[in-house]
Write a protein that binds this DNA or RNA. Sequence first.
DNA 1: TTATTATGTTGACACTGTAAACATAATAGG
DNA 2: CCTATTATGTTTACAGTGTCAACATAATAA
Lengths: 202, 202
Amino acid sequence: MSNETYHHENLKAELIKKGLTLLDEEGYENFSLRKVAKACGVSHTAPYRHFNSKDDLIMAIAIEAHHKFNQCLEEAVNKYPNDNKSQLKEMGYSYVKFFVDNPEYLRLLFLSDFANKIKKMNDETFCSGEQPFNTFYKAIERCQSENQNGEADSDDLNAMALSCWGLVHGMAILIAKKDFSYEGDYLELVRKILWGGTSLNL
Amino acid sequence: MSNETYHHENLKAELIKKGLTLLDEEGYENFSLRKVAKACGVSHTAPYRHFNSKDDLIMAIAIEAHHKFNQCLEEAVNKYPNDNKSQLKEMGYSYVKFFVDNPEYLRLLFLSDFANKIKKMNDETFCSGEQPFNTFYKAIERCQSENQNGEADSDDLNAMALSCWGLVHGMAILIAKKDFSYEGDYLELVRKILWGGTSLNL
DNA sequence: TTATTATGTTGACACTGTAAACATAATAGG
DNA sequence: CCTATTATGTTTACAGTGTCAACATAATAA
């Protein structure tokens, strides 16, 4: 570990870091491996000593984002240690807020072609509890079992999971991608929907 | 209009058609203007006589998809001429089904970088009623005004719109992109959620 | 000290989008 | 009917892309 004059000291980490920056600045379509290399001050093939392909680098960036996201969800759970329903609501709010704050992560985690690769890879390397969906699912299970003791809420856990997840997923995307136009504070609206009981009541 | 020996008779339409096919087959990332040209049997710059750029061609393809989608929503509305709530439910179901059946349209209409360009362009060229969101919004408004006569349902139309749209949007994406894994029939689950009153009840 | 491995560079290749110059078919004006 | 113009094609060229092979050198192991 000679102080400065080593090849590049820690290129791999810097590639990921600058890569995310470039992804944010230039957008996904204009993102290029060569630009990342140039931004790190190395030749255009240097990244190939650390990643097998362009997709591999993006994957590494996405995994970072994946961790941050799951951490964000777990923080929401920990905010209400003894209240399952509040856990779920807070998780939903955090879910939306995360992608509104980091819209570029949306594509990385869900919208791009690697989204599925990432998911598959995560299923193999990490325990599946690391998956945001599982974090969600478990919270719903806790709510469900709580409700079973009282009156029956829904006889179908899967329906619950899909509708909960779908709702926050959809709102996150609509707001983050600015498809839903609204002249007020989006996150307040989301909070109202999740906490204020503005239910669909069809 | 000499029968066969004309330049290419109707290249523009064929570019759009073969373009959509290629988009479906090869996926968005591997889609290339030159491949479309080759598939149509013309030189690789011929498309530039009909479209200003690659994005322009994709846009044209997307606009087709956009029309189909909106048409799909309107059919759902027309299925229940006198029942606002059923209209909304059926529209939600059609919304999900459309993207489950045509997963490649998802990216075209909502997930890609042009999604916003398309939306903006549509706002200018068509009347805004052509927008799926508006079709949705109007249906919600009808439900809302119906409920106002009875007991108050929600004092916030925007919250209703966002949650309705978010729910179907999210479910469509989760299912179409296979993020939500379920061993049964997805569309039946969706139908149950929308029609069966499997409400969140938080 | 020497052999091996890790990490870099240079150069090449096929592919991409796109612009310029050119060619020819269809059409309009006289 | 002849000619000028326009619409629609092709060829060629260029810069940018991902990736591979060959080579160079620093770090490490024998």
